[in-house]
Amino acid sequence: MLPIGDPSVKSSKFLEAVLVNYGEDPYDLVKESIKILQERKGTFLPRENKQMPGMLDWFGWCTWDAFYHDLSPQGIREGLRGLSEGGTPAKFLIIDDGWQDVANEFQKEGEPVVEGSYFGGRLVGIRENSKFRSDNPTSEGTSNGLKDFITSIKETFGVKYVNSLQLF
């Protein structure tokens, strides 16, 4: 028989594991629950008590809808160029999925993409993938990979803030 639970858990008593609340409107219920937790814990503020980040006043672009997992430095540059030429330059950029090394046992190299198979991917390294590194002769990467690429697009297109995400 397999052991039950996480062996690294050292306690069997948890005084603050669950908050139970009830109400008619789920949106009001969540707001009210957050306020109760904030008063109890004192470690965070509800959204309405936080200052909005200044970058929300800027126009931004997320690469996900343009590329999904098929992201490339060239595609990002073309997208930023198109936005600038169209009169809506992006001041912040979210480089979404597709910049890190991911293995997918459900999708074989060179085969047509089967819808949904990309959700079987798993992160295999923190470093940027070969598309963003200069050691790949077909990449537009630079000597310091993603770091230099981001510096370059900031200088070229006036992007002020870049965030790179990985969802795996």
Rank of each mutant, 00 (worst) to 15 (best):
Gly98Glu: 02
Ser130Ile: 02
Asn136Ala: 10
Leu56Thr: 03
Glu128Gly: 14
Leu83Ser: 00
Ser72Ile: 08
Phe92Pro: 04
Leu37His: 00
Asn136Glu: 11
Asp96Tyr: 02
Ala103Tyr: 10
Phe14Val: 14
Gly54His: 00
Thr43Ile: 07
Tyr22Arg: 12
Glu115His: 08
Leu2His: 12
Glu111Lys: 02
Asp65Phe: 11
Glu39Cys: 13
Thr138Glu: 14
Lys108Glu: 09
Ile4Leu: 07
Gly110Lys: 05
Lys131Asp: 08
Glu24Gln: 14
Gly42Lys: 13
Glu128Ile: 11
Ile126Trp: 14
Asn144Ile: 08
Tyr27Leu: 00
Val20Ala: 08
Leu167Met: 14
Pro112Ile: 05
Asn163Arg: 13
Gln166Ala: 12
Asn136Ser: 12
Lys10Gln: 07
Gln107His: 15
Lys147His: 09
Asp70Glu: 11
Gly82Leu: 13
Asp97Ser: 14
Tyr118Ala: 04
Thr151His: 11
Phe67Tyr: 01
Gly121Asp: 00
Phe149Cys: 01
Gly86Glu: 01
Leu56Arg: 05
Gly110Pro: 03
Asn129Gly: 09
Gln38Ser: 08
Leu71Trp: 05
Arg122Asn: 01
Gly79Phe: 04
Glu111Leu: 04
Lys41Arg: 08
Glu109Met: 15
Gly5Glu: 06
Asn144Met: 13
Phe119Tyr: 04
Gln166Tyr: 11
Ser84Cys: 12
Thr88Arg: 11
Asn49Ala: 13
Gln74Ser: 14
Pro46Val: 00
Arg133Gln: 15
Ser139Arg: 06
Arg40Val: 05
Thr88Lys: 10
Arg133Ile: 12
Leu83Lys: 02
Ile76Gly: 04
Asn144Glu: 13
Ser130Leu: 02
Leu2Tyr: 13
Val18Cys: 07
Ile153Ser: 06
Gly110Trp: 01
Asn21Arg: 04
Thr43Glu: 07
Glu105Gly: 12
Glu109Ser: 14
Pro112Glu: 10
Lys154Met: 07
Pro26Val: 01
Asp97Arg: 13
Gln100Pro: 13
Glu111Asn: 05
Asp135Leu: 11
Glu105Asp: 14
Asn136Tyr: 11
Trp58Gln: 07
Phe106Ser: 05
Gln38Ile: 00
Gly120Ala: 02
Glu78His: 04
Arg122Lys: 05
Glu105Gln: 13
Gly60Met: 09
Gly125Glu: 02
Val124Met: 09
Tyr27Cys: 03
Glu16Ser: 15
Gly141Pro: 13
Gln100Ser: 15
Leu165Val: 09
